[in-house]
């Protein structure tokens, strides 16, 4: 394509770090747009991106979170398209982005399927993943969509609860809209103004959901359930303590569902939880949530 420069938006910073890593490897320039609020709660990833040679631009407009980072990356792209590729980080935005990102992420369900058949000789009963825009979730679901026996569960960020304004649970509280180049479900007011959503997790703090998830919801193939900050933090702590795995706070939303669901199932049932990121980046936010300041 002849592009020499990569731009990306990022919420939690995982996609920004990935884009910066790829750019470093390919000797490309990289600019990452990140909501100013997210640059503060995900400072470790900001440092990593800079270390990898990327420029991180804090976005101060709107709520200073993922949605504003997407808007700003889109604005930047319209002004500089000849040498720049926009590497969108979720299964959202205008076509063909949701398809491109889904095809890459689909490696997750391909590997899950291969490995579970090898180990257990049967398909899982439930596959669950967290959903902001929904890239790791669609990747986890994709190769199971035709296997009707596999229940697919997306876990949205309910923030402080779906009955409060401080939530990002799009399927639960949003309605159909057109924004960021896609028709899907969005948290919005009666006049279509996009709602200032909230979640403890920067990666899920987005007022929309990828259009393919909206479709899977509409046809009843996947179920989307809200998980609060408190539930996610408890799951974050639980996995750390019991398995020695510190999961990303995003993934902890899906984990929370699995922890609740497992006791209802027979012992031979299989739940696969996608841990889409590691939680080092979240330690200081979770500590803060628990009233402890570890950043002196």
């Amino acid at each position: 394509m002849g592009k020499t420069r990569l731009i990306a938006e990022t919420g939690a910073g995982q996609h920004g770090v990935a884009a910066a890593t790829a750019a470093a490897l390919m000797d490309m320039q990289c600019v990452v747009f990140m909501g100013i609020e997210d640059t503060q709660r995900q400072a470790l990833n900001v440092y990593k991106m800079k270390l990898l040679g990327a420029e991180v631009i804090p976005v101060e407009t709107g709520t200073g979170t993922l949605k504003d980072a997407v808007s700003e990356a889109m604005r930047e792209w319209t002004s500089r398209i000849a040498d720049t590729h926009y590497c969108l980080g979720s299964v959202m935005g205008p076509h063909p982005f949701p398809v491109i990102v889904r095809d890459f992420q689909a490696v997750i369900s391909r590997e899950i399927k291969e490995q579970i058949l090898q180990r257990e000789n049967k398909l899982p009963d439930i596959v669950t993943a967290c959903v902001g825009g929904g890239s790791n979730a669609i990747g986890s679901f994709w190769h199971f969509i035709k296997d009707e026996s596999v229940k697919l569960v997306g876990c949205e960020a309910a923030g402080k609860g779906v009955d409060t304004f401080e939530t990002a649970a799009t399927i639960t509280t949003g309605r159909l809209g057109i924004f960021h180049g896609m028709k899907s479900y969005f948290c919005q007011d009666e006049y279509g103004q996009i709602a200032p959503v909230y979640s403890i997790s920067a990666g899920l703090d987005y007022p929309g959901i990828g259009p393919e998830h909206a479709y899977l919801h509409d046809i009843g193939r996947a179920e989307y359930i809200p998980v609060t900050d408190e539930e996610a933090v408890c799951a974050f702590e639980y996995l750390s303590r019991t398995e020695g795995i510190i999961p990303a706070i995003e993934s902890a939303h899906a984990l929370s569902y699995a922890i609740k669901k497992a006791p209802e199932l027979d012992k031979d049932k299989i739940i696969v939880v996608t841990i889409s990121g590691r939680g080092d980046k979240d330690c200081s936010s979770v500590a803060k949530y628990r009233g402890e300041n570890i950043n002196e």
Binding site: G177, F179, F186, Q188, Y191, G192
Partner: peptide, 9 residues
């Protein structure tokens, strides 16, 4: 105006 203002109304 933007598409969602019209669509949502």
């Amino acid at each position: 105006t933007y598409a969602n203002v019209i669509f949502s109304y």
